[in-house]
Structure formats: C-alpha cells, structure tokens
Simulated scan of single mutants.
Amino acid sequence: MNEGVEWGVHSCLNLAWVGAESAVSSARLAEYYGLPPGYMNKQLQALARAGIVYSTPGPGGGFRLARAPAEITVMDVVAAIEGREPAFRCAEIRQRGPGADDVAPVDPCQVDQVMRRAELAWRAELARRTLADIKAAVEASSPEVPVRTRRWFAGP
C-alpha cells in the first residue's frame, strides 16, 4: 500500500477538524506534513472522484469533506487511493518449474486461497472503521490535536 493512503486518511481527519465551513487548499494540507504538494493534490483528486471530499474553486477555495466522518470508512479512502483491485494476484507460478507436472490445474492454489481470505478480513476490518472512529480515538487520547490542527489551518 502506498503512502498516499496514509496521507489521504490524515488529510480527511484534518478536514474534519477544520470543519465544513472552511475549505483547505491541497498545498496547505501538504505543507502541514511537509509533503510534496503535487502528490498531495493527486491523492485529494482521487478522494474527490470517490465522493469523499469535494473542491471549491477560487480564492478561499480548497477541499472539504463531502460526507460526515461517520459516513466515510477507512476502506473508502483505501479504495479511492489504491483502487478496488485485489492486493494479491495469483500468477499460478506453481504451474512452472520442475514441480509443475505434480500440480493439477483444476486444484485451487492454496497460497491464493489464504491470501484471498486474509484480504477479505483486512477489507472487512477497514470497512468497519470510520473517520469518526479514528477522530474520536485521537480526541480521547490527545485532545490538543484537533485544537492545534484547527489553529494551524486558520493561520496564514
């Protein structure tokens, strides 16, 4: 998984703390974490295409959450950034090499089966967790984070 997913989740949390009344530019979001602005904008555009954020043009424009944090799952963000393709794709390498004659092509690849089950469990867990869940956990453990975040984004 590329770091764009992490950037996307953190950016969405920042937008949640800033609130729906304020848009934040991609450059400002990138600056917050010292990230490349162009790459951050690419992640935000992917989130926008998925309906997670929306952008407003012009002075004072930028990005805002398109839905409430409780309506955005971590899996939504992962799928927006990474796509919905499976993380593991069996290439049937067991059909190659000296052991290929021992493998019946109709037998399911056990490696593929294990990887698919693991991915389904991973996706299900991410689909159960929302931005609101993460936001609440951060606010409970570090109540200064949302205040500091709002203050920073309100500055110049």
Rank of each mutant, 00 (worst) to 15 (best):
G62E: 04
V138M: 01
G19R: 08
A80N: 07
T73K: 04
Y33Q: 06
I72H: 02
G62I: 01
V18K: 02
M115A: 11
A121S: 07
P143M: 06
R117S: 09
D107I: 01
L15T: 11
N41I: 11
R116E: 09
Q43L: 03
A16L: 14
D101E: 09
A68W: 12
L35V: 15
I72Q: 01
E31G: 14
C90T: 00
E3H: 06
R128S: 12
G99F: 14
T73D: 02
L35R: 13
L47P: 10
A80W: 05
E144R: 08
A127V: 13
L29Y: 04
S26R: 05
S26F: 05
A100R: 05
A20R: 15
A50G: 05
A70N: 05
E82G: 05
A124F: 10
P146I: 12
A20V: 14
Q95G: 04
R148D: 08
A48W: 07
A30T: 03
E125W: 10
V5F: 12
A48D: 12
G4D: 11
R129A: 06
A136W: 09
G99E: 09
I81G: 00
Y54F: 15
V53T: 15
Q45M: 09
A16F: 10
H10P: 00
R117Q: 13
V114C: 00
F153D: 04
W7E: 04
D133T: 06
W17P: 10
V9P: 07
L131F: 03
